[in-house]
Design a protein around this nucleic acid. Structure first.
Lengths: 339, 339
DNA sequence: TTTAGCACTCAAAAGAGGCGAGTGCTAACA
DNA sequence: TGTTAGCACTCGCCTCTTTTGAGTGCTAAA
């Protein structure tokens, strides 16, 4: 693989990314002034095709990059594209605006990412399960209903409605809250065990029958809804890609993207640090075989807690997407830790 | 407009709705056994076309209903389709499952509607503004942060993060909560006035400087986010309609549907009771000129508080959509009032 | 008033050429 | 030995034409 071959391959990939048309030898020789004739380029192309890096849609067409071609490009050829200053400013500004709530900050990142890259984005939001409870409190709402407010260590607040037996007054709620706080504070939603509940239950020996059902509900409520959420952004951007001019393809892909459990799997963090690129069939799902997914993880307190992803056709602007994604995940991590 | 003409028109519309193909005289004479020959049907069709109820895409094609044709069908011809028992059961069952929270109940309705009709649905959720405050409470979260929990009369619960000055202890929060409750309880979010805040501010004369900023934030927080939300459901169903096989049309429509403020306007309740049908250009937006929108309002406590809508191509199954929508809005209203 | 018959229309499908972008191969050249 | 000009060849795509067939409107007879 000599230098000229690399330059030819790079030219083919760049041109195809930009135009979505198969690239011919003439175009390359002229536009990417390599200083050689089309015939020479053709010879190089024949070699590249033999190596499996490019292919011909049909005999008399130009070449397009193969999946391995893209892979080689991403691994060896691609030049890092610096993130433009305005882009940096925009990201910082937008994130600063959402510095109140974790969830809002993360959602905003997804939105920004789809705006800046013009691709579809996927966001895996952190699961609440790993966070520890800081505070739990009950408020009576109406007859037989109370709201449980949970405050986690990372500042996330959630409330859940639960049924409460009649006959509890405000004072009762207050004391139950306090008791629960004593036992539960500092435990994570994940590791929190039912045995704790039993201790609490024992301590609340007065009104035991009255509270049984209530405590059971609290227990339940704490277990529910811990799973990670997936946010989809800029889904309509798919429609701009010429490879998705076919309605059926769009539909298949969209349906796949809306399957939250699958997307959760697709976005689950890899061991490698930084930005991961999965091209075509490197994605484990058949439905993504014409797409590339670029992901990066973000962190809170040093630990990986979620993933941002950019999804486009295999013919996507890798360098731009990667640089924006890289910058954004770092900005997000920073934001989260400042919060 | 004699009986036979009506039957011909009905046949054309039903057939076109089912097949999306222009309908010829032969088809009608055969399939909808009118007991006359195609030639006779042709004569009737010529009359119907003169009346503007049907039209020909081109000379040698069959007829398709015009916008006025659909209008006549919906107003005069359409037979009411009873909602199937399984459908009723499904709706009741699904709604019963969400009988805890208003918001969940309403969102579920939209989801059900898109599943049952196979069209796209729009839901206008009630604004919080009209509900009165039942309870308001502050909980300290961390240094300089508190969460405000608001309970409205309809059972809706919301929490908002606000900044709190340092130096307030749990006891302070408790007493502020109590004071606010005394003044605010029973006022609606809409009618609630700043003057009330000032009274409160005066009463809290101790720590006045400390609390100023805090109270201002509460005030702000109560004003924010009162507007009605629009939920979109089954957006992908659009892709099944042959009239949307063109990507650009899909994109234009989807972009329109995602404009929340426009959709809010489109869904704003009309004076008429029950189900409203807007066909083609009867919708005020250019982008909806090939669509029909069927809406119905739902109520809480006798008052209209929101809208459900079914959006399809003008060639849509009006009778089915209308009956399902009608049943569902009633079930939703019932559910909300039981809640 | 209804209907059979028939000429007519026109979109869509099928076929036929021509174009041109692009290739691979060969032979000459540096 | 690598590079290039030349040339025959391939094949998708565009355009033009033809064919097909579903459907019509009109007329005249029942």
């Amino acid at each position: 693989m000599d230098e000229r071959k690399r330059r030819v391959l790079q030219a083919i990939i760049l041109d195809y990314i930009a135009t979505a048309d198969p690239v011919g030898s003439r175009t390359i020789a002229k536009k990417y002034n390599l200083g050689v004739s089309p015939a020479t380029v053709r010879n190089e192309m024949a070699d590249l095709e033999e190596m499996g890096l490019i292919e011909q849609p049909h005999t008399s067409a130009g070449r397009i990059p193969s999946q391995s071609g893209y892979r080689y490009y991403v691994d060896c050829l691609m030049e890092k594209e610096p993130v433009r200053n305005e882009t940096r400013e925009m990201i910082r500004g937008a994130l600063l605006n959402r510095m109140r709530e974790t969830e809002a900050l993360i959602q905003m990142s997804g939105k920004l990412l789809s705006q800046l890259t013009s691709y579809t984005t996927l966001v895996l939001a952190p699961s609440m399960g790993q966070n520890t409870l800081r505070h739990i409190q009950f408020l009576p709402v109406e007859r037989e209903k109370a709201v449980m407010v949970i405050v986690l260590d990372n500042g996330h607040v959630e409330h859940r409605l639960i049924e409460a037996p009649e006959g509890l007054n405000e004072e009762d709620f207050h004391s139950i809250s306090q008791l629960l706080n004593q036992h539960i504070r500092g435990l994570s939603l994940e590791n929190w065990r039912a045995s704790v509940m039993q201790t609490i239950y024992r301590d609340l020996d007065y009104h035991r029958d009255l509270l049984g059902k209530f405590i059971a509900q609290v227990e339940n409520s704490l277990l529910v809804g811990q799973d990670q959420k997936v946010y989809l952004g800029g889904a309509l951007n798919i429609l701009n890609q010429p490879e998705f001019k076919d309605i059926d393809k769009v539909k298949t892909l969209m349906e796949l993207l809306e399957e939250e459990s699958l997307m959760k799997e697709v976005l689950s963090p890899t061991d490698e640090d930084g930005v991961t690129v999965r091209i075509g069939t490197e994605n484990m799902y058949e439905g993504l075989k014409d797409c590339s997914l670029i992901t990066a993880t973000y962190r809170f307190d040093g630990k990986i807690i979620g993933t941002l992803g950019v999804l486009g056709p295999t013919r996507m602007e890798y360098s731009k997407a990667i640089s924006v994604l890289d910058f954004l995940t770092k900005a997000l991590s920073e934001g989260l830790n400042k919060l």
